[in-house]
Computed example of a mutant assay.
Amino acid sequence: MSQKVYTQGSAFPPTKPGVLRLYSMRFCPFAQRARLVLQHKNIPHEIVNIHLRSKPEWFLALNPLGQVPVLQIDDKIVPESTATCDWLDDVYPENQLQPTDPYRRAWDRVLLEYSSKLIGPYYGAIRSTDASEVESKSEEIKKHMQFFEEQLKAREDGPFFGGSKPSTFDFFLWPFYERLPMLPLLKDNPALDIEADKIPTLTAWAKAMRELPAVKATSLDASSHATWYRQTLTGAPDYDMFLKED
């Protein structure tokens, strides 16, 4: 199936019985969460990419919120990034990602809730045109990264939040960590660098994450992310950017 996006007016690509489908968007960090889990657990699937500024009518019928990711298999539909990942881990239990220890599972939920404090200033920094506000948002991001640094350090069984193997939360956090190095490029301001030396435990975590086949299969470099967000800020992003002609 083509990686190119389906837009308003596109015909619905017929589903196949028993074939798992992910509705996604190649540059979306939330959709990347589901893609990471699918790749890590080697779950057979197909991907349909959606133009999020010109959504097909049939996609809105599947998910009226118009957001990705959405999973579909036969008559079952699961939207939302954390729900899709948890569902995949439950339905495909091999290589389990969710912690079996109730205390750690509870704290992974705490970390997930806290990650919203990171996501808010991340998008705020991207959208702002005021240099001082961007730097303020960057400082917020660095403060929240220190929280994750201390939480991971306290677990003492790394390199992952899941210990010797990644957990669901590792894949929840990664898409946003992956994109942080693009901020200095996007805003042409070296002061926005995440200062890896100040978060050594997370820096070691990131190195370990980059070695995972799932991360290698779904990640883009900082320059590519910056190019995408520059286009997004102009109001006319190319959803098929970097794809070769079919």
Rank of each mutant, 00 (worst) to 15 (best):
G66L: 08
P69W: 01
Q3W: 15
K4L: 13
P14H: 02
H51C: 13
K55W: 10
R35M: 09
A11M: 10
D74K: 04
C28Y: 03
L38G: 02
C28I: 12
G9V: 01
I43V: 07
N49R: 05
P44Q: 00
V37Y: 01
A11L: 15
P13H: 12
T15F: 11
V37C: 03
N42R: 14
Y23L: 08
H51W: 02
Y23F: 15
L20E: 08
M1E: 14
V78F: 00
P14A: 06
C28N: 05
Q67S: 09
L22Y: 02
P44G: 01
P13R: 13
N63F: 12
S54Q: 10
H51S: 13
P44F: 00
G18Y: 06
L36D: 02
D74I: 10
Y23T: 05
P13F: 10
H51Q: 09
Q32V: 01
H45R: 04
R21N: 01
T15K: 14
P29M: 03
K41L: 09
Y6H: 15
I43Q: 11
K55C: 08
R21P: 01
L60A: 03
V68S: 05
V19M: 13
V37I: 11
S2F: 05
Q67Y: 09
N63Q: 14
L62F: 10
T7R: 04
V70A: 12
V5G: 03
A11E: 15
H45K: 08
V68F: 07
L20P: 14
L71I: 13
W58V: 05
L20R: 12
N49A: 12
L65G: 02
N42F: 11
R35Q: 12
S24L: 07
H45D: 01
L60E: 12
Q32P: 04
C28H: 04
P56T: 09
I73G: 03
P69G: 05
P17Y: 10
I73W: 10
K55M: 08
A31I: 08
V78A: 00
S10W: 11
K16H: 11
P14M: 01
V68G: 09
R33D: 00
G18S: 04
L36A: 06
E46D: 15
I73A: 07
S24C: 02
H45T: 00
R53S: 10
I73L: 10
F27V: 04
L38Y: 09
A34E: 06
K76A: 05
P56I: 06
P69I: 00
Q72P: 09
I77S: 02
V68R: 06
I50S: 11
M1R: 10
I50N: 12
G18W: 08
Q32R: 12
G18A: 03
V37A: 07
I77K: 06
H40Q: 09
L52P: 04
G66T: 00
E46S: 11
P17K: 15
P44K: 00
P69Q: 01
T15L: 15
H45L: 08
Y6A: 06
N63W: 13
T7F: 07
V78Y: 03
V48A: 03
Q3H: 14
V5R: 04
E57C: 02
S54F: 08
V19R: 14
A34Q: 00
L20Q: 07
A31K: 04
